[in-house]
């Protein structure tokens, strides 16, 4: 089969599998934190909930922007797919093994705030709109440190290709070589994926915010796409900071999957154990704390390379 024909089903499968794993992890960690006996229903619950949402008919608010509202989940799902395309499973094996893979990924991650804002803005509803504002505030503040730690990770490889970045870590993973990278990355991913302590755009204080007015297939696609973004960011994080396919005994692709699931589990645990951060506090933290740390990460990596 030609590569261009094999790519879409491969990405779709990876995305679907990742989203299912994320949903099951979320249900299981939720049960553990709530001190409930985990049951089989924990694994079945996400499917049931998805089925219920899929059976619901779409609702409409008063004078929504229908086109933008329909576009938002599709765009987010597309961005999640783009993120997964750059993840290499083995040397030279990636859907899009492009020379500027990390830039492509950074652009997709930064663009997430467009669909998230549209999801809040389109329904013409006050609290959803505030959710959209919040997405811009936290997205713009976290984007630069997010991009800087990716650049610092690319420096030792002297290449922007994700495959090269992974190959350059075969002796020493970036999590050790650029020690500030992964912490800053894990602090900015929740902001860009509006997840866990930074799920403020969809916060309970807004009765669901950007999700407030959505229902039916639109909501289901949106939730799947959000989980997909989380999976994409975990997979790239595993490649860029945790050495990707490197690891003993097991074949390379298995290591990529294991490391991705580990990062995903950390993000899921964060959402159940870390309280929401005030949006104003986060914006200040991002500009005053994360940005200098990310710059320091770049300078230290450069100095180490000299």
């Amino acid at each position: 089969m030609p590569a261009w024909l094999a790519a879409p089903p491969t990405v779709a499968f990876a995305l679907a599998a990742g989203v299912v794993v994320a949903a099951c992890l979320d249900a299981a960690v939720g049960d553990v934190v709530a001190h409930r006996v985990p049951r089989w229903s924990s694994v079945v619950r996400p499917w049931r909930q998805a089925a219920v949402v899929a059976l619901q008919r779409r609702t409409s608010s008063e004078r929504p922007d229908r086109q933008a509202w329909a576009l938002a989940p599709a765009l987010l799902l597309g961005l999640a797919a783009v993120m997964l395309t750059v993840v290499p499973l083995a040397p030279g094996v990636a859907v899009a093994d492009v020379p500027h893979g990390i830039v492509l990924y950074g652009a997709a991650a930064a663009t997430v705030l467009i669909p998230a804002f549209l999801q809040g803005w389109s329904p013409n509803s006050a609290l959803a709109m505030i959710g959209g504002y919040r997405m811009f505030a936290q997205g713009l503040s976290s984007m630069i440190p997010f991009a800087l730690v990716l650049i610092a990770a690319a420096l030792p490889a002297q290449s922007l290709a994700v495959g090269e970045i992974v190959a350059s870590q075969q002796g020493l993973w970036n999590v050790v070589r650029t020690p500030l990278g992964l912490p800053v990355y894990l602090a900015t991913v929740p902001a860009l994926a509006f997840w866990g302590p930074l799920a403020t755009p969809a916060g309970r204080d807004l009765a669901g915010g950007i999700d407030l007015e959505a229902a039916g297939a639109q909501l289901l696609t949106w939730r799947v796409a959000q989980a997909g973004v989380l999976v994409g960011m975990s997979a790239v994080g595993a490649s860029v900071f945790l050495g990707g396919w490197a690891g003993p005994l097991l074949p390379g692709p298995v290591w990529v999957v294991l490391k991705t699931v580990a990062l995903l589990a950390a993000l899921v645990a964060m959402s159940h154990l870390v309280a929401r951060v005030r949006i104003e506090r986060f914006v200040v933290l991002a500009w005053v704390g994360l940005l200098p740390l990310a710059l320091l990460d770049v300078f230290l990596t450069g100095w180490w390379l000299l």
Binding site: G30, D31, A34, H35, R204, S271, A275, R276
Partner: peptide, 16 residues
Amino acid sequence: SLRTQGLGALATRVLG
């Protein structure tokens, strides 16, 4: 308070 700050599972445990 926990539920408002996004910690639904822990809120359920406290409610229990």
